[in-house]
Design a protein around this nucleic acid. Structure first.
Lengths: 211, 211
DNA sequence: GTGCAACCGACAGATTGTCGGTTGTTATGT
DNA sequence: ACATAACAACCGACAATCTGTCGGTTGCAC
């Protein structure tokens, strides 16, 4: 018995499965057969909706980054929070897996998923950069930060936070603590902040989150 | 007529071809057939020397990073150069393709070569980091820089330089000039240097190199 | 002339993307 | 209300390619 569905719904189903499989096994270690079997459709159907396996990956990444960007935008827009708190919350939202179907984030940073990781990183960097930049500029007008190049500082901050969060997963105890302190220290310098101003904001968040 | 060669020599031949093909077409778009045809050996021979396609990639990256690390070490050890000059020269050596068979570096940063890029980046970061750290510490004793976390600052500097050099290839004119200035500015801040101290060192080098 | 490292190429197994054809749904005309 | 035309969604066999294996061969060194 053949089941017909709206194209968008099917696509979404396929992306759900792709997200799950790519996330756990990696892109290269997931065959298109795995996907279409899991979805319960035939080969032709898969290629009716997507023109190639990589096309699936791209669509999946689009959807995922879309979610993340949305979350980040919400945080930035929430003017009830102080600037630095928003900045921190945003970096966490981008890097730590939580509620929404973003449990992949943890897997994405595996060596096996280089392609996925890079594509996502690139997307995120370009799309989130304006948000971070605006936050920094807001901080400057408030006299909290100071820099001649907000945009580039934002880029560097994002880059560094990504790598650090990646690495943090591997550390524990003392070493971890040091990495966090260094992260804060460097960020403060980069954004031209008073020594210690980020510390009070970040540390409590770190303690409660991320094990 | 069958040609027998010393294992190391054959391996080297294979890596030469792999370097060329992976570099230009990317890892995924190069088949093992492409390689063995170009080298002029049979399928079995390829798999006699390497246990998988990825094994070839790893070996190739080893060889390549080895070369780069060697170059970087030489620069760091050259005490006749001032610290900042050595630092700059090193970052250039790692990112700009020149003489030696490193013309790949330009290709490595393509989206198609994500795996290669990541593997290389990871290797380079971990191996070069101690060198940069020692340079920074040298700078600190000389009173040129100042930071509480030399190692992490080194990591951040490397990361940032990599990304910036990547991106720089795409820019030109005004935008490029701004990126360079921001790069210098951020690096100075990160390493706790006097404003402008890197400028005099980097700018001349940039003008002559890298178009 | 023996032993072994280097080499060969046919082959199995798996994977991606294509294509002609099928089915269900929806719109249209009577 | 009913036939039917048109089209979107779906199917599965198939071609083409690719990776890794394996039994067997060849040339060199001792």
């Amino acid at each position: 018995m053949r089941v017909v569905k709206d194209a968008e719904e099917r696509k979404s189903e396929i992306l759900d499965v792709a997200e799950q499989l790519f996330g756990t096994r990696g892109f290269d270690n997931t065959s298109t057969n795995d996907i279409l079997q899991e979805v319960g459709i035939a080969r032709g159907t898969l290629y009716y909706h997507f023109k190639s396996k990589e096309d699936i990956l791209d669509a999946m990444i689009d959807r995922m980054t879309g979610r993340l960007i949305g979350k980040a935008s919400d945080i930035v827009a929430d003017k009830t929070m102080p600037v630095l708190q928003r900045l921190t919350a945003m970096m966490l939202a981008l890097n730590v897996s939580d509620d929404l179907g973003c449990e992949i984030m943890a897997q994405v940073h595996k060596p096996q998923n280089a392609l996925m990781h890079q594509k996502m990183q690139e997307r995120l960097l370009t799309q989130v950069n304006p948000l971070v930049t605006s936050l920094i500029e807001e901080g400057i007008t408030q006299g909290i930060c100071q820099t001649d190049y907000p945009e580039e500082a934002a880029e560097m901050a994002l880059l560094y936070s990504n790598t650090t969060f990646d690495a943090l997963a591997e550390y524990g105890g003392k070493e971890r603590q040091k990495k966090i302190m260094a992260f804060i220290y460097n960020l403060e310098r980069l954004l031209g902040m008073e020594r210690g101003s980020l510390l009070d904001v970040i540390l409590p968040i770190f303690q409660e989150t991320a094990q």
